[in-house]
Design a protein around this nucleic acid. Sequence first.
DNA 1: CTTGAAGCTGAATGTTAATTCATATTGAGC
DNA 2: GCTCAATATGAATTAACATTCAGCTTCAAG
Lengths: 187, 187
Amino acid sequence: MTQDRPLRADAARNRAKILEAADAQIVAHGPEVPMEAIAAAAGVAVGTLYRHFPTKQALVAAVIESHLEYMAVEIEAALARVEAGERAADVLFEIAGRVLESAASDKTVKAAASAIGAEYDPGDSFDRMTVASARIVKAAVDDGDLRPDLTVDDLFLVFNTLPTELPADARRRWLTLMLDGFCTGRR
Amino acid sequence: MTQDRPLRADAARNRAKILEAADAQIVAHGPEVPMEAIAAAAGVAVGTLYRHFPTKQALVAAVIESHLEYMAVEIEAALARVEAGERAADVLFEIAGRVLESAASDKTVKAAASAIGAEYDPGDSFDRMTVASARIVKAAVDDGDLRPDLTVDDLFLVFNTLPTELPADARRRWLTLMLDGFCTGRR
DNA sequence: CTTGAAGCTGAATGTTAATTCATATTGAGC
DNA sequence: GCTCAATATGAATTAACATTCAGCTTCAAG
């Protein structure tokens, strides 16, 4: 899909700048940032956005995909550690903070997408993320560290729930409360 | 503020219809519903919206205020029950579900407001709500039912966090996880 | 039943933002 | 360094909205 013909050097550079700028702008100003603003932030003209992405929706979808990809990689790495013998709950909690940031941005972007009406394709990364997460949660439950009725869906519910806007320390506090609700108390 | 001169009967009726329609439309379709849509839902012409509210922001602010008012009343009633001897944690949890609904809508509407750039005045209702909530939380903590480090801010953090969109059962599940995180386990 | 103020209507105005496209640039194979 | 297909540019087009206002309608006081 990316390789019909290799991209010209400057085009590839611009594409990257556009994705980066779009991410930053959308996370910072929400759904309604003008394409002009994204273009300006990327240092290109609007027309260039449309050379790379047919519509604003498509651009937003691409940004989402990059977030999902990041999270998938992160979580698969965590799963590897669990399978290598680390305690699942420990790994999960350690990851949480880092993934949280991306999840937060991702949520903003998803909201942006649906506000615009994009029915974007969940795609490969999402499945990878789900599968890996499910295994980690299962392991932690089996260890007796997480309440036995807990599932990946709960985890996702909570991650999708998380507040986008507010301060880092509030976010940390929130995470603590959440995770405490997940634990058996035995840990 | 409401009583410069009593409103003509039909005007009062329209104002109520407008507020109701605005609430429904904003909660259902989000910030960006056109004034035209609100007008149509209320069965009046756009001009009428502007007779009652100078700008869209003002209309949105009025809707927020009505939600806050509802919650303030609800929570003050809860406080009365606590002061009458009911166990604070019980009352709090019983209320939670009901207040949750309004909080969810309110969040949507607030988001709408800030998306439009309304710096609306938190106002009286908000303070009443805060004060009453703080007392209930304090009582529950003193009873030993809620973890001792818990404050109203935590409660609000959680209520502001709550997902607007999703299904009633998911919301219930979420609430359970949250509240479990709040408890001492003693209860 | 009159009448004037209070209300209502909806087309017109002004603004903002997505998307297009004719024109101008530029990378890379030769 | 030449050439042209790939790219980039940004003014123009089009669509949605918020908001205004001149003219019409309806309460309600007398």
